[in-house]
């Protein structure tokens, strides 16, 4: 009976070589495909959005707008303007500003936040993120912190 050789054979080498080449070729095809699926970022980092009709808001009133595609609530306080993310950290519904109670309320699962965006009650795992507010004359601008 012929003893089987443990040395690499030409066929074995070719099998491994073809396997490695196929994997490299596969990666060349797959990587651009996966990158294509990854969404390209939109909007600049420091994008500032003007709050339309900001000066017409009375103290305790709010306005909602989008900054880089994300909803932001701008609230007029006695001392100026404050802005917080309107996206509830629980499951992404938009919170509403309750001017009388001075609280943010999520209509989906009843999370409640105080006027500084801190959790008062409900299922939210964290506070509402603050946004930067800049007043230039009669105009008010909001941008991400």
């Amino acid at each position: 009976m012929k003893e089987q050789s443990t040395d690499p054979t030409r066929r074995g080498f070719l099998d491994v070589f073809i396997g490695i080449c196929s994997a490299i070729m596969g990666a060349f095809v797959a990587i651009p495909g996966l990158m294509y699926l990854w969404p390209a970022a939109k909007g600049g980092a420091g994008e500032e959005v003007e709050v339309k009709g900001a000066k017409n808001l009375s103290a305790g009133e709010s306005n909602i707008l989008q900054v880089k595609g994300k909803a932001v609530l701008v609230v007029r306080t006695n001392s100026g303007f404050e802005a917080y993310s309107a996206i509830c950290p629980h499951l992404g519904c938009l919170v509403k500003w309750e001017g009388v109670k001075r609280e943010f309320l999520c209509p989906c699962h009843a999370a409640v936040f105080d006027s500084k965006g801190q959790v008062l009650s409900g299922p939210s795992p964290g506070p509402l993120s603050p946004y930067k507010v800049k007043e230039v004359g009669e105009k008010v601008f909001v941008s991400a912190v």
Partner: peptide, 9 residues
């Protein structure tokens, strides 16, 4: 309407 969540979704 991306700026208005209706209640009880």
């Amino acid at each position: 309407d991306p700026l208005n969540t209706p209640p009880h979704i």
